[in-house]
Amino acid sequence: MTNPSTRPAAPQATQSEDIVLRTENVSVYYGAFEAVRNVYLDIPKNKVVAFIGPSGCGKSTLLRCYNRLNDLIPSARVTGKIAYQNNDLYDPKVDPVEVRRRIGMVFQRPNPFPKSIYENIAFGARVNGYKGDMDELVERSLRSAALWDETKDKLKQSGLALSGGQQQRLCIARTIAIEPEVILMDEPCSALDPISTLRVEDLMHELKQRFTIIIVTHNMQQASRVADYTGFFNAEAAEGGSRFGYLVEYEKTESVFNAPREKSTQDYVSGRFG
């Protein structure tokens, strides 16, 4: 078992790549409770990175650090350093709203705005100061999210009238429209049926040409299908009985699934626990 408080000794899987996000010794606390401890992890550009692990191991918590969404929880506190292209995300001078414009997010449950399909996409672009041809942007975003054919005749209809899978693709289209560099996805398929899930996964393969994607998933097949790199998180009991999450192993996806270095990774990916 790795001592989670030290940097993994093995060479970083992502050494030779162009790094977008650097995570150095990051721990997240909710009040006195430590949710994630001492994570070192680099996210390479134009790749899909999956976070897997059992519930309560802090993968979603870590994901929410990358766009400062934890700021919304008053008791949350982040230590360590997260650098986005060499800028410290948690520098007091950094505007969290600006961070979220560069690092978009797709949530677990589809959450279109109570507006028309068109407005769902146009709104995000407008708040980000987009001045160009809005019709063209809406079409382009919907096409990128593989939703154009289904919605081109009903752009004025409410986004809430779509099916769950379509809503989630609308949320992806909305995120694409603001042209972020990184897209965070927090279990984006957990509320979708298998066919919608496949469509979203296909979409991810296309999107990684233009974006860097970090996806949290409970579905290991999904991680093995979409991810270039996979980080396995686990939870462990700390002194006093409360559990904290930590990064066990972070490697190319094939090696995490086929030749994991750690016993706990092996157990998890082969379905022996978790």
Binding site: V97, R100, R101, F107, N111, V127, C171
Partner: peptide, 16 residues
Amino acid sequence: SIPSEVRQGLVGIGAT
């Protein structure tokens, strides 16, 4: 009555 997911979505696209 407005779900908190909508508020998160707003924050997520960088709306003030």
